[in-house]
Amino acid sequence: MKYLIDTGLSPEIIKKLEAKYDESTLDLLKIERDNVIEVINYFKEIGIKDIESLFVTYIEIFTRDVDDVKNAFNKHNIKEVVEKINDDIFYIENI
């Protein structure tokens, strides 16, 4: 999972993920590596600030196909949605 640090997430993230998730979930991060990187890059592109908290809390979003994630966001006013997520990461449940 060191690749996560290469995307700009903090080194603590690996410990946080290991403390929270089973090995099977961590294996999914390995299997879906390319997709995970694409989703992280997409979130950076649209301006989401706290990607790390989002990642640790909603890991299932990052293992989905990036096109599915983009389609979900494109149904909303992205600027408004990003602002709300930056204010409160739990807002993403509304997407």
């Binding site: 903090s10 600030k49 706290d50 790390e52 908290s53 204010d87 409160d88 990461i89 739990f90």
Partner: peptide, 14 residues
């Protein structure tokens, strides 16, 4: 009920 945004902003970013 929902929690105020400032209550749940906890990461290094905040």
């Amino acid at each position: 009920p929902r929690l105020r945004g400032e209550i749940t902003r906890l990461s290094a970013a905040h």
